[in-house]
């Protein structure tokens, strides 16, 4: 039987929901029947990329406006995990961000690097008046 899962969540544009969304991502990773890798590691990685992507959407794209919302979809299809984080803002072009300088002890600038390191494909596009950050990981 094919394993198809799709979860669609909307939360207010507030960091207090990071933990909830991260945990939902973790639980989805733990339910995957066919994944042969380290399930705990995958769960942790999904938690972290969801947290980083949502925090970017809340603070940068949606500019901390509590009236806005963040929309997240998590889907398993064709042996891939697809995570999409939609914002309602002007966007922040992740492709323009340089890789962090490991020698320079900057307080910021590690989030997108973490996402890129843990996922196989990452893109950021205009969508419906806002933007969508799409992250894909192959589950084989």
């Amino acid at each position: 039987m094919k394993e198809k899962i799709e979860v669609d969540i909307r939360v207010p544009n507030q960091t207090r929901y990071l933990s909830l969304i991260g945990k939902i991502g973790e639980e989805i990773a733990r339910t995957l029947k066919k994944y042969k890798g380290d399930r705990n590691e995958l769960a942790y990685h999904i938690n972290i990329v969801l947290t980083e992507a949502m925090a970017n959407a809340i603070r940068h794209a949606n500019e901390g406006d509590p009236r806005k919302e963040v929309h997240i979809t998590i889907a398993i299809k064709q042996k891939c995990l697809h995570i999409r984080v939609f914002d309602e803002g002007q966007g922040f072009d992740i492709s323009s961000l340089p890789a962090p300088d490991f020698e320079d002890l900057d307080e910021h600038g590690r989030g997108v690097y973490i996402i890129r390191s843990l996922m196989d494909r990452v893109s950021y596009k205009k969508y419906n008046g806002g933007h969508v950050l799409e992250m894909v990981k192959t589950l084989s």
Binding site: L18, N47, I48, T51, E52, A55, H108, R110, G111, I114
Partner: peptide, 12 residues
Amino acid sequence: FVDSSGLGALVS
């Protein structure tokens, strides 16, 4: 669990 903001606070 620690994210980039948590790491950033420790770097600060």
